[in-house]
Design a protein around this nucleic acid. Structure first.
Lengths: 209, 209
DNA sequence: GAACCCATGTAAGTTGTTACATGATTGA
DNA sequence: TCAATCATGTAACAACTTACATGGGTTC
């Protein structure tokens, strides 16, 4: 259900083609929702059927045809209804944590590598988030400018403030993960490294201990 | 794919019935993976077919039959292989952030309620996480004790340390969300509240601005 | 005897992933 | 001309959700 509103939200700022949406929901890390083109195209068809978006064929750079989707008034209303609805937090599914906990049966170096990868992952994210936040605060973030331009001048500060808040939240999350991983890396150095995996242990040496 | 390993991980500590697993993966908040019984039962059948777990019928409290699943050596090996594999971080899908950003078109009070709900959600989580962490550190967390008992004594500190680290990470995350929401609540009080939703604005008053 | 917990399952539907498929344009 | 990018789709599969279905035992 959220893909629908992520698309409506994007299109509430400016019209776009399926291809552009697929790019923004794919590579771009400044966005808050991921989806592949194979999910986006059918969803756009459904939204158009429901009258929440309208398409218009337009010639692309060369002679190719592009479908440009724009949000309808019905779409805007639906989006407005959704954003104010009470948010249902999704169930927690954290495979990284499961791996960490059950690495208690692996050599200490495997734990170290796991935490180092976690650290790097969030350092990379942090760099991107900080860059975006800088652009939002400097007023050079393209989509922020477009959204402000499409709305009454009085809404400008709110648009900028909420976008900045959202990105600050991501920055704060990344920093938390980095600090946690660093602490964890320091802590595990004090641990013994028995490395007696339970399977080999039992089958090779029998039921000792 | 991760449900499989969450189940194998759980069963690597102690045998359990599908019902017990469904409870642990459902209500219990101290765990890192959620799943419903309708997903768990078929998955257990598949794991048994693959020889990664073994079942054994046992009488329950009354006269009812319970299937108790235990992990096999093949299951342990598969789990050990998985935990050391490089972790693929899932794509970001954050509906809460999408709502926040597109609340720029709603009355300020809707933003306030959104942030207050966020705050409460993570305060509730924090309380649970802190409680679990306390039990882990005090050595009274039942599943930690069971896991330590099922493994060589030398592994005890590592088991406790990794479990504590995982829970500390959750505590840190909850604290970050709380601090962020509090900052955000303070910040939005400085914003104007125009409340001119774009749809009504345009359709009722025409293209002013 | 009604409501609730224990215990196990299936079925239908939604969401998301990976792979397959096509064709035009642009630049090396 | 070969590879990359633009642009749009479909098909098969995997993961997850919600609802349906059953039956024994316990407690009020």
């Amino acid at each position: 259900m959220s893909l629908k509103y992520a698309l409506l939200g994007f299109l509430s700022t400016e019209p776009a083609s399926g291809y552009t949406l697929a790019q923004e929901f794919g590579e771009s890390m400044g966005w808050f929702w991921s989806a592949s083109h194979s999910q986006i195209y059918p969803e756009l068809h459904r939204l158009e059927e429901q009258g929440l978006i309208l398409s218009q064929e337009a010639p692309g750079e060369g002679a190719k045809i592009k479908k440009i989707y724009r949000i309808s008034d019905a779409g805007r209303l639906d989006l407005q209804r959704w954003v104010v609805q009470e948010h249902e937090y999704p169930p927690i599914r954290d495979a990284e944590r499961i791996k960490l906990v059950f690495l208690d049966d692996a050599p200490l170096d495997a734990v170290r590598r796991h935490l180092q990868a976690h650290l790097k992952h969030h350092e990379d994210l942090l760099a991107i988030y900080r860059d975006h936040l800088g652009q939002i605060r400097a007023g050079t973030f393209p989509r922020l400018l477009k959204r402000q331009a499409s709305r009454p001048a009085a809404a400008g500060p709110t648009i900028a403030a909420l976008k900045a808040l959202a990105m600050q939240g991501n920055v704060a999350r990344a920093r938390t993960e980095i600090a946690w991983a660093q602490d964890a890396l320091a802590l595990i150095e004090g641990l013994p490294d028995p490395h007696v995996p339970s399977v080999e242990h039992r089958s090779v040496e029998g039921g000792e201990q």
